[in-house]
């Protein structure tokens, strides 16, 4: 009988993390931020049909980077979680914190127990229940189940650190929608590239959209907001 080679747990975890990070680094990044009327998510996405940013529930949005099929699976699980919870209890009982924890547990479980970690990073964003309050909450969840929460902004994806630094320079609280879109696009594109509306996926969570606060900003509307 052959003995399997001994691999130190540290090494095992590090290898898995490296594997996941490499997968994530291959994809494009996204930024989620609070602006003066709610939350804005701007993602670089060359596809117009395979979405990175989507609606989970009345006040909750989801965004993912990395391997599409994996974060889309997480997105659908999130929609199911939210709709079931709202159906069994009440719509106001559905919140992002509990959803983020569920995601974290699932990702953590997969990271340690399954063959292959998920090559994704996800963002769960929520605006306040009180319609007069425009502040938001962003939960950034990593491939290994680590959760970070932010109230200002979060950057996900391969070039996150570089984009984070660029974006921090332009970010302030209470940006207007055009300012926020501009700042995010400038940070995503960097000094050497220009992004076209077709390369972007933009959506907001705002109480001004009614009960379902999620709205995509696309087409001519997005064109008007592009940095000149």
């Amino acid at each position: 009988m052959s003995m399997p080679f001994y691999v130190a747990p540290e090494q095992l975890m590090e290898d898995r993390a490296d594997y996941a990070r490499k997968g994530i680094a291959r994809g494009r990044s996204l930024i989620g931020l609070s602006y003066d009327e709610g939350i804005l998510i701007v993602a670089e996405n060359a596809s117009n049909t395979l979405r990175k940013v989507s609606e989970i529930y009345d006040r909750i949005a989801f965004a993912g980077v990395g391997k599409y099929n994996e974060f889309d699976q997480l997105r659908i699980a999130g929609v199911r979680h939210a709709d079931l919870k709202g159906y069994s209890f009440s719509r106001e009982d559905v919140d992002a914190r509990s959803l983020a924890n569920q995601y974290a547990q699932m990702l953590g479980q997969i990271f340690t127990h399954e063959m292959k970690p998920m090559e994704v990073e996800i963002l769960v964003a929520e605006i306040s229940q009180d319609s007069g309050n425009t502040s938001g909450q962003l939960f950034h969840i990593l491939y290994d189940g680590t959760v970070k929460d932010h109230s200002d902004f979060a950057v996900l994806g391969g070039d996150a650190e570089v984009i984070f630094d660029r974006f921090q320079e332009n970010y302030s609280e209470n940006l207007t929608l055009p300012e926020a879109i501009n700042a995010a696009i400038t940070a995503l594109s960097g000094p050497d590239r220009t992004l076209e509306p077709d390369d972007l996926e933009v959506a907001e969570l705002s109480h001004s959209n009614g009960r379902r606060s999620f709205r995509r900003i696309e087409g001519d509307e997005l064109l008007n907001f592009m940095p000149s």
Partner: peptide, 10 residues
């Protein structure tokens, strides 16, 4: 038992 386990359904 009519109260669901609100997990992430997979």
């Amino acid at each position: 038992d009519t109260i669901i386990r609100v997990t992430l359904p997979r």
